[in-house]
Amino acid sequence: MPANPKHLTKAIHQRMAKITAAILGGYLLTTAVHLALATWLDKGTVLITSTYTGFILWVALMIIAFLGRNGWKTWGIYLLLTGFFSILVYVNKIYFTVETAL
């Protein structure tokens, strides 16, 4: 049974934004989340569990990217969250570098 055409995205730029946000943005966010977890928690445990949870999170973020109406907003949210988790990694590196220097 085909989809109802009124629910499909007609603009090619919105469709491409959703596809790239799902694949690239979801992967970037998944990687940033697991890097942040690895800096704050036990690295070995996060590395072992990230093989499974990384794939699950990436697929969930792919699905979420297609649920929204605007692909550019999805890109913005994914990049904002990726930046947030990257800042957490950076802050942790600075904190432990200063702490070990003392």
Rank of each mutant, 00 (worst) to 15 (best):
R15V: 05
M16N: 10
M16G: 02
A17H: 02
A17W: 00
A17R: 00
K18L: 04
K18T: 06
I19F: 09
T20A: 12
T20M: 08
A21V: 02
I23P: 00
I23Q: 05
L24D: 10
L24V: 15
L24P: 01
L24G: 11
G25Q: 02
G25H: 03
G26H: 04
Y27N: 04
L28E: 03
L28F: 15
L29N: 05
L29R: 04
L29V: 08
L29G: 05
L29A: 08
T30I: 00
T31G: 02
T31I: 06
A32K: 02
A32P: 00
V33D: 01
V33S: 02
V33C: 05
H34V: 10
L35I: 04
L35Q: 13
L35F: 09
L35Y: 15
A36N: 09
T39K: 09
T39A: 14
W40A: 15
L41R: 11
L41K: 09
L41Y: 15
L41E: 15
D42F: 12
D42R: 11
K43F: 10
T45I: 15
T45S: 09
T45N: 08
T45H: 08
V46W: 06
I48P: 02
I48T: 13
T51E: 13
T51D: 06
Y52K: 04
Y52T: 13
Y52S: 13
T53K: 07
F55V: 13
F55L: 13
F55H: 08
I56V: 06
W58A: 04
W58D: 00
V59C: 08
V59W: 06
A60S: 11
A60C: 09
L61H: 01
L61D: 00
L61S: 01
M62I: 07
I63Y: 12
I63T: 07
I64K: 07
I64E: 08
I64Y: 08
A65S: 14
A65V: 05
L67F: 08
N70Q: 11
N70V: 06
N70K: 12
G71N: 02
G71T: 01
W72P: 00
W72C: 03
K73C: 07
K73P: 01
T74L: 12
